[in-house]
Each structure stands twice: as structure tokens, then as C-alpha cells.
């Protein structure tokens, strides 16, 4: 096994906001209907996080649990911990209908930072950022591809599919170019 490499190997760009590709991050798609016995325990066991409410993301240290749809959660954790977390989820949801899969490598993750970080995303997503609530995980699109993002630590974290990481980096860079502040 070689070291896992992220799609863009940590590419970065400094414009009126600072962009960098981070990761690889451990990510698990957990599908189960709300109220499935053991679901809260599974999320807790995998991430240490409480169950997120609708469209919210709960963070706990390096881990997070985000609400993706009524029967889908995105669990974020250190890359190396995925196998262990999957096992713990399996135990907690033993006998319950669910699906937990490793999607760490199917994704690319970006940080957009700086006082005007929101402006970069305002150019790409049909989302009312003035109304984006704290800890709200918003799924939408960035220009022509699917993206999910949330605000944290003086910026935004954006997740997209790995194959379009270069496209998304291009979008973010063009949007963050100096002189293009909104």
C-alpha cells in the first residue's frame, strides 16, 4: 500500500481568499432511516458526534457527522480510522437495515478561507449565504457539478467528487482572483 494521495495533492491558490485542497479525509456514507435502532450509537461510535438535525453538521474534534438526506449521513473522520469506524458501525447496527461504505477516495475537499471566503462561493452556487445558518451543511452545485459545503473556522469547507477536483479548483481560483471581490 502506498500513501493515499488526494486528487490534487494539496493544490492551493491565494487570491482575495485563500484556497487549498485538503485531505485525504476519511469519509463514510451511512444510509439508514431516521430512528433505526442503533443509528445514534453508530454515529457516536464512528465519530463521537451526536446525530445531526436536518441540514446540520455536528463536529467533534477531527470528526464530524453531517445530514445529507432523510436517510443519509456523511461521517468525516481521520483517513486511517475508516476501517475501524465501519466495523463499529456494523456492530452498532447489527441486524438493522443500513448501508455504510467508505467514500473517502471518491471525494475531494477544499478549504476556502479569509474574510471574503463567502464571496468565492456566492459566485458558484445558487445559495443564499446570508441565510446559511451556523453548522448548516448545504448541498447544492458549484457551477456545473454537485458540491456540499458548510462554514467553519473562518472559512468554508467544500466537498465535491474526486474526478472533478481540477474543475472545482479552477472554479474557485477564477472566482477568488484579486479584483473580483463582490
Amino acid at each position: 500500500m502506498s500513501d493515499p494521495v488526494s486528487a490534487l495533492q494539496g493544490a492551493s491558490y491565494d487570491g482575495f481568499a485563500q484556497l487549498r485542497e485538503i485531505g485525504p479525509l476519511g469519509m463514510i456514507t451511512l444510509r439508514a432511516k431516521a430512528g433505526t435502532p442503533g443509528l445514534e450509537a453508530a454515529v457516536q461510535a464512528a465519530t463521537g458526534c451526536a446525530m445531526p438535525q436536518m441540514r446540520r453538521i455536528v463536529r467533534q474534534g477531527p470528526c464530524a457527522a453531517g445530514w445529507m438526506s432523510p436517510d443519509e449521513l456523511l461521517l468525516i473522520l481521520p483517513y486511517a480510522d475508516v476501517a475501524g469506524a465501519l466495523a463499529r458501525i456494523g456492530e452498532a447496527l447489527q441486524g438493522q437495515h443500513h448501508l455504510a461504505v467508505d467514500v473517502s477516495d471518491a471525494r475531494a475537499v477544499f478549504r476556502i478561507e479569509g474574510a471574503k471566503a463567502d464571496q468565492v462561493l456566492r459566485k458558484l452556487s445558487p445559495v443564499d449565504f446570508d441565510r446559511l445558518e451556523p453548522n448548516e451543511l448545504r448541498r447544492s452545485r458549484a457551477a456545473q457539478v454537485a458540491a456540499a459545503f458548510w462554514a467553519e473556522e473562518g472559512g468554508f469547507t467544500l466537498v465535491c467528487f474526486r474526478s472533478v477536483a481540477g474543475y472545482v479548483m479552477g472554479l474557485l481560483s477564477v472566482s477568488a482572483r484579486p479584483g473580483a471581490e463582490l
Partner: peptide, 12 residues
């Protein structure tokens, strides 16, 4: 923004 390299998403 849809011009040049980012005219459309290229999947790699």
C-alpha cells in the same frame, strides 16, 4: 466563468 479549462467539468 465557463470558458477555457473550466468551460465544462472534465472528469479525470
Amino acid at each position: 466563468e465557463a470558458r477555457g479549462e473550466i468551460f465544462q467539468p472534465l472528469r479525470k
